[in-house]
């Protein structure tokens, strides 16, 4: 297969590794370069993302149920307010019941960053970084650099133009991207490890100015790609969060070093 060959080549050159079969449920994202949307004036234009493993799909309700069964302190009635707000697992029927059967493979939502982090640790994984997530999500179904593809961007934008649904469809039910990863767009938002470093102050227009310099301890020449509206929205979304927040359309997936 073309994709397999391409991956082998990239991995061979970029990370100095041979062909690795990723563990079940994870995809190998080869090393590559990523241009952050926001960066400080001394930050490089591009950063290198080392090859890593990424869950092919967001964590489902069924997956998360196993986690709370094994870890009572993350059950809805047990969780500490400090680690998850009052809407934690709000759509579930009970501590160990995610409700309707059709939710089995739907992505788990209403989970805090603390909870997502704990889940990943329990699985021997970690949350992906913003750079890793954005790099993986820049791939369209056909190419690794889908970010420059107007049609792909427009398809992503279409998700924002549709109302939220209360019954989320199952994970991995649509075409995966170039790296074999599903649902990075068009299903739910996802937590990343460093969600609060995006440096959006809430007032998008001030983010290029002095306030941000003071606020974040770094200067800025603003954004890298003024045309990339979906990226703006992801950064804005992440910036609006606090680690204990839970949101009806915010889930997560795990990542792992090679």
């Amino acid at each position: 297969m073309g994709i397999g060959l391409a991956l082998t080549t990239v991995i061979g050159r970029g990370a100095g590794l041979g062909v690795v079969a990723p563990p079940s449920g994870m995809a190998l994202v080869p090393s590559g370069r990523y241009e952050p949307l926001f960066r400080g004036e001394k930050d490089p234009k591009e950063v290198t993302v080392e090859a890593f493993l990424l869950d092919v799909a967001p964590v489902s309700n069924a997956d998360y149920l196993e986690f709370v069964k094994a870890n009572p302190k993350w059950r809805r009635s047990e969780v500490k307010r400090l680690f998850a707000d009052e809407n934690y697992l709000k759509s579930w029927a009970d501590d160990l019941d995610f409700g309707a059967a059709n939710r089995t493979n739907a992505p788990v939502v209403h989970v805090s960053w603390f909870a997502a982090k704990a889940y990943c640790a329990w699985k021997g994984k970690r949350l992906p970084t913003t750079a890793e997530w954005e790099y993986a999500a820049a791939a369209s179904p056909r190419r690794a650099d889908g970010g420059k593809d107007t049609q792909f961007k427009q398809q992503i934008l279409a998700w924002y133009a549709q109302p939220s649904v209360s019954n989320l469809p199952p994970v991995a039910s649509r075409t995966p991207n170039y790296f074999g990863v599903h649902d990075l767009h068009g299903l739910v938002w996802e937590w990343v490890a460093d969600f609060n470093t995006a440096m959006v102050t809430g007032d998008a227009r001030g983010d290029t100015g002095l306030e941000r310099k003071l606020f974040c301890g770094s200067g800025s020449e603003g954004t890298n790609d003024r045309e990339n509206y979906p990226a703006y929205m992801r950064y804005a979304f992440r910036s609006s969060l606090k680690a204990a927040y839970t949101v009806h359309n915010l889930g997560f997936r795990g990542a792992k070093d090679l």
């Binding site: 809430g202 979304f237 949101v247």
Partner: peptide, 15 residues
């Protein structure tokens, strides 16, 4: 005031 309230009112869904 800077931002006209924008930074102080930045709010995630359900908050």
């Amino acid at each position: 005031g800077p931002g006209g309230g924008a930074a102080s009112s930045f709010t995630a869904p359900g908050h």
